[in-house]
Amino acid sequence: MALLETRGLSVRFGGHLAVSSVDLDVESGVVTGLIGPNGAGKTTTFNLICGVLGATGGRVIFDGRPIGSLSTHYRARLGIGRTFQRLEVFGSMTVRENVLVGAEIRQAWARFSHVSPQLLADGEELPLGEEVELLVERLGLAAVADVRVGELPTGQARLVEIARALAIRPRVLLLDEPASGLDDTETGHLGELMQQLAASGLAILLVEHDVPLVMKVCAQVNVLDFGQVIARGTPSEIQANEVVQAAYLGGS
């Protein structure tokens, strides 16, 4: 059984079925890809998983437990972290403060719920401040730690979002186009980081339009089109898939 599963997940906006019967399995220890053309419903699927949007049908199962009725912040407390396609950083605060807020919020609710161990530290439990420093450093943000995030370029702001999401020590991390705005070197580092995180036991669901990156880091790739999963498989299977080619390039 996968850590995070969706079964028949659907949402309807007016008469439009934006996500239709989506089944996903997000396993611990690997990066799972979710790709598809514009408007295919990828971000909407994220919103349904973390409860920002209510599903009109289907179930979200986390660690064997249906969580579809929980509100967003309870789902986060179970261990679902995410980033946003359209940046949702705390623009008026510095990079360090952004991560600190995440860690502080976690510390506040950690008293009531089970929290997974730190992902990037090796074994030992670090004090809050050090954990924040560690995250800032591992995301390559040490040089800009005291810069207001509102003043950062997109790529770095995306890394801040990842660091902040990691600060709540999630068990599954939903990344929404983390590489957009990054240059090739940064994208390379991000790929390595994702693989490291996965290796330490995190489940990652990656929405990304940088297809080479997806092909490089993902163990499994799901292709979404018109709100439906039209294909799933290993990267090489997906690349060879005619249906996928048609979905991306259209027609014949």
Binding site: P37, N38, S180, Y248, L249, G250, G251, S252
Partner: peptide
């Protein structure tokens, strides 16, 4: 502007690809 490239190439005189 078209994501589904093949549909439009038949009618176009000039084509351009955008990336990042």
């Amino acid at each position: 502007i078209e994501q589904f490239a093949r549909t439009v190439l038949g009618v176009a005189d000039i084509a351009a690809i955008m990336l990042n």
